[in-house]
Structure formats: C-alpha cells, structure tokens
C-alpha cells in the first residue's frame, strides 16, 4: 500500500508476517493452556449426570392407597460438598394397586412449584395456569410435557426417591428433560 505509515514500512513485509504468526501462535498456546482446564473446571461438574442421591420419602405404610401427598425429600447421605444432594419437594402418589409414583414439584412450563389439590384431584401451577391430572398428564395451560418423576425403590418398608427424569405424553421415560 502506498499509504503505509513509516514505522510499519520499516519492518519488511516478510518479517512482519513472521512476527504476526509467531505472536498469534504464542497467544493461542497461552489461551489453550489456560482455557481448556478452566473451561472444564467451569462446565464439567455442571454436566455430570446421575448425581442425585437416594432420598428418603417415608415409610410405605404412611401412604394411603389412592392418596397423593407432599413430602420433603431428605437426602440419605450427608451432603458432601460439592456432591450435594439438595432437599427437594415431591408428591408421592400411591395408586389403587398399591404401587407408587413420585412427582417432581416443578411445573414443566417454567418451573414454578406446583401444588396438589385433593378436592379437584388436580395439580395446579401458580404462575401461568398449568393443570395436571393425578398421573401428571397435562390437562390445561402451557406445559408441554407431563410432570417430571423421580426414580424410586422400596427397601425394608421405606420408600426412597432417586434421580429425576421426564416422561412423554404416553408416560414413557424420555430422559432428564424433554428430548
């Protein structure tokens, strides 16, 4: 270029290119050495799956057949930082055949805490009018999938709730979130 400033022109073009490539390579190396570990440090703990510990929901005999009851899930093991298992809210449903379903208490629209209304036999979300039936199916409002559920198991007469998963409209398991 004819308008090249003097100080730029004083460095021959080939030398300038070489210097720029070298500076770029060094910057890239510094960025990579710092960036890859820091990216993993930030992101990987958040993406780890299966970290929900089994939590006690209560003795099986405490749940009446046909009833849906709110329980505060108490994590089994003491939260070991940072593998902490949070205290959560859930709804335990004991169906007519005596088997259980455990529902996560966050609405599947934007996560507001749902409540079970025994008189209406419905779950209601307080935010945008989401309504679910006793199996967690959407009856009204904006939610696009049934209530999420907890894995569960019964040991020595006690019901335990585990990891949360999502179900499709046929109530088949589809993963943690809508897929």
């Amino acid at each position: 270029m004819s308008s090249e400033p003097h100080h730029q022109a004083s460095l021959p073009r080939s030398r300038r290119r070489f210097t720029m490539v070298l500076l770029g390579a060094i910057s890239g190396a510094i960025g990579g050495i710092l960036g890859i570990p820091l990216g993993g440090f930030f992101g990987l703990p958040a993406l780890r799956s299966r970290e929900f510990a089994w939590a006690e929901a209560g003795p099986v005999d405490g749940f009446k057949v046909g009833e849906i009851r709110f329980v505060a899930l108490m994590p089994l093991r003491r939260p070991v930082w940072p593998e902490e298992a949070p205290r959560m809210g859930a709804f335990v449903s004991r169906k007519a055949d005596g088997t259980f379903e455990v529902f996560h208490n966050h609405c599947t629209h934007v996560g507001c805490p749902v409540n079970w209304n025994p008189a209406a036999q419905r779950f209601f979300s307080p935010c945008h009018g989401g309504v679910f039936d006793r199996s967690g199916r959407v009856l009204a409002g904006p939610p696009q999938r049934p209530l999420d559920r907890h894995e569960m198991k019964v040991e020595k007469g006690v019901l335990y709730a585990g990891e949360i998963y999502s179900v499709n409209e046929r109530l088949e398991r589809v993963g943690r979130y809508h897929s």
């Binding site: 929900f52 949070p86 979130y177």
Partner: peptide
C-alpha cells in the same frame, strides 16, 4: 445451558 447456569441439574449450592 441450564445446567451450566445452575452448576448442576437443580438450583443449589453451586
């Protein structure tokens, strides 16, 4: 994105 924001599957200590 939600997990990266929360630091895990649920809102908690992280």
């Amino acid at each position: 994105a939600a997990r990266l924001l929360r630091g895990g599957p649920e809102v908690g200590i992280r």
